[in-house]
Amino acid sequence: MKLLTHNMMQSHVKGISRRFPLLIKPETVRVVEQEFNPDFVRRMLGRIEYEALQQAMTWLGHEGKLPKDCPSEDENNEDILKAIHHALLEVEMVEGKLVCPESGREFPVKNGIPNMLLNEDEV
């Protein structure tokens, strides 16, 4: 699971108000190099929750690698964009858990795949 994916997800358990971000309890983390597409990174900057991305990097043991403040969508500094690219697409949780911030419901992540299926009584 990439952190871009994590940033796009929220808890969908019924009857809660605080859904985002899902807490991350990592067991295995890996870094896989991906092709750098500055246009895509810039576009995603306008869509993601930057604080949650910083928080996620901390949970995965990669704190301090992102600029403190969210760069704007017309950011041109390649080093900054590459740092965000790295956080969004290259740092992955292979094994671990995602946890609903309000209900504490845990969603397992196995082989990099989060299982977000809810039981009948949770929908």
């Binding site: 997800m9 929220q10 969908h12 795949i113 989060p114 299982n115 977000m116």
Partner: peptide, 12 residues
């Protein structure tokens, strides 16, 4: 990929 139900997704 993630495992989920497309009538009730976990996406924002």
């Amino acid at each position: 990929v993630s495992v989920g139900d497309c009538t009730k997704t976990q996406l924002r």
